[in-house]
Nucleic acid binder design. Structure first.
Lengths: 163, 163
DNA sequence: ATTTTTATTATCACACATGATAATAATATA
DNA sequence: TATATTATTATCATGTGTGATAATAAAAAT
């Protein structure tokens, strides 16, 4: 999830709540009971409400057994420069040196590795650099495990639906 | 920053705001003007206020030129069961199959690989499973690059200091 | 086909987050 | 030392997020 609407880094809050709830096979009423709120209120949240109080999000997170993180994030490494991205993800390429040209010649291969083994920051930077289409393509490669593939299919589906 | 008080993952929100503001050499009045709020209100926030509306945090983030991230983070995989950890980190052992017994027979070797190439989740799960002492030991192995070693020495030093 | 469960929409009262304002204390500047 | 700037504390009016409730639609179960 990202709260700043200018950057699509994940699901909107409401969609995330729904996703977490349905993963647990809970009804709106069940989660509402656990979170100390009401089903119609939760429905409102899952349907696009966006102006939460943190206290509300805290209750919901607690009921769902997840951690609520709230971060002010400085603009990350500049991803306009290939050299910056290369330096960031180079550690993932233990078997072969990652050359600067590889970013443009073999985006699928690079992304596959990043999606499979990269940290959040590395993945985020690569996604920004290559774009969602390239990520979707890379997620379809044989070297990507089904769990990771499903993850990205869901994320990118959500990101495409929002545009 | 982490919003769930049960886990210490960073600065409280208010302290983070102050840190970002003073880094820019702005007064309370300056940030207040940019964020469309008031100096006394900002002072309240920086001094421990904790029950924010997201809209408020958005305004402040925008004024500070930073990204507001709001995440529900799943608790990581259960690390009580060796099979779960093994499944999680298995992709990192591309050159040799990771057998269940390896976790107990060669913890150093397993951890070295995880520390060097693991994702955040993988590292976190392994750390939880093996404990900090084992991580410290593994970080000292020859196959761990100095940067990673320093990273873990710092982290574990901090973790030891906190107890 | 009927009943039960769940989701969805709408209304409303109330608690409270927020910013405006004033006053005072502390710090920085001239 | 005097003045200006900034930080801090307190009060209060207002807008709004929230949950309770009712009604209805849709989906699932029997």
């Amino acid at each position: 999830m990202c709260d700043n609407k200018n950057r699509e880094l994940g699901q909107p809050i409401g969609a995330r709540i729904r996703s977490l709830r349905t993963a647990r096979d809970w009804s709106l009423a069940e989660l509402a009971k656990r979170a100390g709120t009401s089903a119609p209120t939760l429905h409102r949240y899952e349907s696009g409400w966006d102006r939460f109080e943190l206290a509300t999000l805290r209750k919901i997170a607690s009921a769902l057994g997840v951690l609520l993180e709230v971060n002010f994030v400085e603009e990350s490494v500049s991803t306009g420069a290939p050299a910056d991205l290369r330096a960031l993800i180079a550690p993932l390429f233990w078997d072969r040196e990652l050359r600067p040209a590889d970013l443009d010649q073999y985006p699928d291969w690079v992304l596959e590795r990043v999606l499979m083994f990269g940290s959040r920051d590395q993945v985020s930077a690569a996604r920004k650099y290559f774009g969602d289409e390239a990520v979707a393509k890379a997620a379809g490669r044989r070297g990507v495990d089904p769990k990771t593939r499903n993850y990205w299919n869901t994320i990118l589906e959500g990101a495409a639906g929002a545009s």
